[in-house]
């Protein structure tokens, strides 16, 4: 059992969720309520990582993270080490490929709030930000919880992109999914089996917890 890889995967999932939580609330609300030109285009862009092979997204990220690209150059200048094959690079890649999993359910959550309720909030004197806190979020939270659960579980299991932009540096970018692959390559089926079972258990527990929460809330989250 590669505990280091498991810890790294959990850490990656944690940071991804932490970054995507506010992002999904803001972007989800914007896409749910906004009426603007090019909305379909933005929605399509958000969904793109869902249909692209991870290797394609990974390839572009790797190019973008490189020292010859502006982002990679900027990162190198600021932090003194390359973005590619680093944990930070992995988090950034993870945030990008989880965009559809985070934003879409949040958007659906906000869309489920009747327009008249938002108007009632404004008529009751609530500023837009206060209404978000007092009315929108309490009503949209099933969608947001769904988004975060999917993001968490999906990050634990992602393989292709991690391999492309992270490689397999122990303690840096070697996630549990990569570790399983490593073990299989080394004909250590027992080691791979233990880790695979652990991943199944964690993913199952996460999803089950969501269902338990949603049954308590009387609403479906997934």
């Amino acid at each position: 059992m590669d505990w280091q890889a498991l810890t790294l995967s959990l850490g990656l999932a944690f940071w991804t969720v932490l970054i995507l939580l506010p992002l999904s609330v803001l972007a989800g609300r914007w896409l749910a309520y906004g009426r603007f030109r090019g909305k379909a285009l933005v929605e399509a862009l958000v969904m793109l990582p869902l249909v692209l092979p991870p290797t394609v997204l990974g390839y572009y990220l790797l190019v973008g993270f490189g020292r010859n690209a502006r982002l990679g150059e900027l990162w190198q200048g600021l932090f003194g080490h390359p973005l590619a094959f680093s944990f930070e690079g992995l988090v950034l890649a993870s945030v990008l490929f989880n965009l559809p999993f985070a934003i879409q359910p949040a958007q659906r959550g906000f869309e489920a709030i009747p327009v008249s309720l938002r108007e009632a909030a404004a008529c009751s004197g609530l500023s837009p930000w206060y209404a978000l806190w007092k009315v929108d979020l309490p009503l949209a939270w099933p969608g947001i919880v769904t988004a975060m659960v999917l993001t968490f579980a999906h990050t634990l299991g992602e393989f292709g992109i991690v391999l492309m932009v992270g490689g397999s540096i122990p303690g840096q970018t070697k996630t549990i999914a990569i570790a399983i692959y490593d073990r299989v390559q080394a004909f250590d089926t027992d080691g791979a089996g233990v880790m695979a079972a652990t991943l199944v258990a964690i993913s199952f527990l996460t999803i089950a917890a969501t269902y338990w929460l949603s049954s308590r809330a009387g609403r479906r989250l997934l």
């Binding site: 008249s116 108007e119 009632a120 404004a122 009751s124 004197g125 609530l126 500023s127 009503l139």
Partner: peptide
């Protein structure tokens, strides 16, 4: 003036009570 800065009391046809 945005709606939240107008001193109005509005009763909606659907009531639009905050369900939570």
């Amino acid at each position: 003036l945005p709606t939240h800065r107008r001193r109005i009391g509005m009763v909606f046809q659907s009531y639009a009570l905050f369900p939570h």
